[in-house]
């Protein structure tokens, strides 16, 4: 009798806890998903539904006008292409250069490599705004230590409004948050047993071959994490894109200037007196269209990401 009562209390406790957990998880998941759901609901509404008191979630007049509008204003397809090109280019180069640096710092120790790693930590710690202006001026008159003027005859290159700033910084592992990626790679490579490398060496593989054939295939989770982070952060970044690219059609610039462009289009360039509700509705649609590719990618990578993150060795 005593035992069964004890069992019952245990059972009740467990049942209560799973109920509380369900409420918590579901509630917080709702908090995260709510803005997306609301944007979807807003974007398929007709203009008249905005003022209809009976419409909250499900629109009365279903329409795709918002999408059509946004696609023309944002120049969506070329913008999508540009952003995709830029993001995948920087992501790929960043991943390669950071993986190399991470391997160098973790396994191929040389004199002063620990000191240099302090430099990596410094790049993580200094806010990018601190070095923004000199980098900007440097890229505006790019000389590469006076080499380029010799070749072109006294003229420096203006690299702004091209993709070169992104290519150069990601090629040299100094793009956005690159320090973090180097750190992730280094931690992960440190987790691979030394014996693996020694065995590869004894079997006659050089250092480069060991890295390519043995180490990299073992670090797929870390590579995926870095690829996803770097792609997403580059896609959404407005800090560097607005500095380096002032006129190019890239997603984050198009999104941030969407309200102005909309105002200009609707009121024929005059002082904008556009209905702010309508403006906000179109803006929501724009954001939805901008993050749609990311969500699609996330759906495919997600399983991989969620399951494998446990082994990425961020923790060390």
């Amino acid at each position: 009798m005593q035992a069964s009562k004890f069992l019952a209390i245990e059972w009740w406790k467990r049942w209560l806890w799973s109920f509380v957990r369900l409420v918590l998880v579901a509630g917080l998941a709702f908090v995260i998903l709510f803005p997306i759901l609301q944007k979807i609901s807003t974007s398929i509404k007709d203009k008249t539904d905005l003022y209809s008191p009976i419409v909250i979630w499900v629109p009365e007049h279903f329409s795709l006008d918002n999408f059509r509008q946004v696609i023309t204003i944002m120049d969506y397809w070329p913008t999508l292409g540009n952003t995709f090109l830029l993001s995948s280019l920087t992501t790929l180069l960043t991943a390669i250069s950071c993986a190399l640096a991470g391997y160098g710092f973790s396994r191929l120790k040389f004199k002063g490599s620990n000191l240099l790693f302090m430099g990596v930590m410094l790049t993580i710690l200094v806010p990018p705004t601190t070095i923004l202006i000199p980098v900007y001026l440097n890229l505006k008159d790019f000389t590469l230590m006076g080499l380029i003027p010799l070749l072109t005859g006294g003229k420096s290159l203006n690299l702004l409004n091209t993709y070169w700033p992104f290519i150069l910084t990601s090629l040299t592992a100094n793009s956005m948050k690159a320090g973090l990626y180097i750190f992730i790679f280094r931690q992960f490579f440190r987790g691979i047993p030394m014996e693996v490398e020694e065995a590869a060496y004894i079997d006659g593989a050089g250092i480069g071959k060991t890295f390519l054939r043995i180490i990299l295939p073992n670090t797929v989770p870390a590579i995926m994490t870095v690829l996803l982070f770097s792609f997403v952060w580059q896609w959404n970044d407005s800090f560097y894109t607005t500095t380096y690219l002032t006129t190019s059609k890239v997603m984050s610039i198009q999104i941030s200037s969407l309200p102005y462009n909309l105002g200009i289009m609707l009121s024929d360039g005059a002082n904008s007196k556009v209905d702010p509700f309508y403006q906000s509705m179109v803006q929501d649609t724009g954001i939805l269209l901008a993050i749609l590719p990311l969500i699609i990618i996330y759906i495919f990578v997600q399983r991989y990401f969620v399951e494998s993150i446990e082994r990425t060795g961020i923790v060390g």
């Binding site: 250069s97 160098g104 191929l108 120790k109 200094v126 070095i131 000199p134 040299t172």
Partner: peptide, 22 residues
């Protein structure tokens, strides 16, 4: 290994000098 290590870190080092330290 030390030489390779320096080579692997070199791209980062160049970037660190030109796009960070300077």
């Amino acid at each position: 290994k030390a030489i390779y290590g320096f080579l692997y870190v070199l791209p980062w080092l160049l970037g660190f000098l030109f796009f960070f330290l300077v």
